[in-house]
């Protein structure tokens, strides 16, 4: 079981709810993914189309809602959105996103850390979206983040876990759960992140824009489970045999001859 801030999750797949063709497709895909945590964004109500309500489509009690602060460009904006989200959801869960660059939507490390410090003081359960920087992960953890969400690749790029070298270090060092977020474009990417030892993955675009989002959601569920099972089972190592030029072969067996 995955535990974040004292709450247990059977499923290690978190789903984003953006970019689906319709609320009903979204609801069905989420059901097919068997996930328990879904992210949502906050926006002004479109006063010309007041019926567009995502919560109605999902059913409030079946999922843990993780509101994000998407659109925030600095800590101040994120904190305001966080408080609005808490008023709307009635819970303190928060995916903190601070993305000042509209082109790449890469997270701002400085503002994210500042916002985390404040929001933890305000009683939020903060899951910050961050670049895959191991020291930043530890700083966020020290600031009280309930989990860290390093990106695999820039959001929406479907490129997979390009940051694997850094994510591995984060997984090794962090005390809080590590949720790989953004960039996961295929079930194999999700499996790869889980095999590395990630505690969970968050997927959105890869499912919402798939030809059949419902089938794709089911595929991700299987991939996440397979990856997790493989990690727990203990993966075999890639063989070192090929590196014949390494100095390992240069050491002779007589080198330990000095031992008494």
């Amino acid at each position: 079981m995955l535990t974040i801030a004292g709450t247990e999750f059977r499923s290690r797949l978190f789903l984003g709810t953006g970019k689906f063709s319709s609320p009903s497709v979204m609801a069905e895909a989420i059901a097919a993914s068997d996930c328990q945590m879904v992210t949502v964004a906050l926006r002004r109500v479109n006063l010309d189309d007041p019926d567009d309500d995502i919560m109605k489509a999902l059913g409030l009690h079946d999922y843990t809602f993780l509101p994000n602060t998407s659109g925030a460009r600095d800590a101040k904006e994120a904190i305001r959105l966080a408080h609005l989200a808490r008023a709307a959801s009635g819970s303190s869960w928060l995916k903190l996103e601070v993305t000042p660059d509209p082109r790449t939507l890469l997270p701002d490390p400085v503002e994210t850390l500042l916002a985390t410090e404040q929001l933890v003081k305000d009683g939020f359960i903060v899951l910050p979206y961050m670049n895959a920087d191991p020291i930043l992960a530890l700083r966020l953890q020290d600031a009280g983040a309930a989990a860290v969400m390093p990106l695999g690749a820039p959001i929406g790029t479907n490129q997979g876990v390009l940051t694997d070298f850094q994510v591995e270090i984060i997984i090794e060092q962090a005390k809080v759960p590590v949720v790989v977020d953004a960039g996961i474009g295929a079930p194999s990417h999700a499996a790869y992140a889980m095999e590395m030892g990630a505690d969970a993955v968050l997927v959105n675009t890869a499912i919402s824009v798939a030809g059949d989002p419902i089938a794709m959601a089911a595929a991700f569920a299987k991939a996440v489970e397979a990856g997790r099972t493989a990690f727990v089972a203990g993966m075999g190592q890639k063989s070192k045999q090929a590196s014949a030029s390494s100095p390992e072969s240069g050491m002779l067996s007589s080198d330990l001859g000095f031992l008494n």
């Binding site: 709810t17 953006g18 970019k19 964004a41 906050l42 109500v45 809602f65 509101p67 959001i155 675009t205």
Partner: peptide, 10 residues
Amino acid sequence: VEIIRFVGGG
């Protein structure tokens, strides 16, 4: 007055 609600998002 700002009236806000949840929408789809990742």
